[in-house]
Amino acid sequence: MIWAVALSAGALVASGAYLALSRDALRAVVGVSLIGAGANLVVLSAGRLDAVMPAFVPEGASRLADGAANPLPQALVLTAIVIGFSLTCFALALVMTIRQRVGDTDSTGLRAAEPPAGADGLPAFPDDER
């Protein structure tokens, strides 16, 4: 089980890194979210995978039964999934806006934040753009 999870996490991070290195902004965002999925698998497996019983305290007992799964990494991974999901949504909206504004999502053409020498020095919000 742990090997299957480890190999899946590795495969997710590898394919995510491949996509993230792409020149296309959309592929880069999908790649980063795949790396995030691999990271989430690592978080989940941090609590060990051999225990599969639901983490409920039996009636009358004061502690978890032997063989119960560790609930903490599940809570952690849930938090990480929510954060990753919201960041991916934000990034997809960002890429869509870039596509509308620039025409495509090829990041080699995106030099607006770092213009060639001699073309910078504008305030972040020049007056004439208001």
Binding site: V32, L94, A113, F125
Partner: peptide
């Protein structure tokens, strides 16, 4: 503006990693 979108994309990818 375009430069803000460009900057935010760079910031997003590198910081999320």
């Amino acid at each position: 503006e375009r430069r803000h979108l460009d900057g935010a994309l760079t910031y997003f990818v590198l910081n999320v990693v």
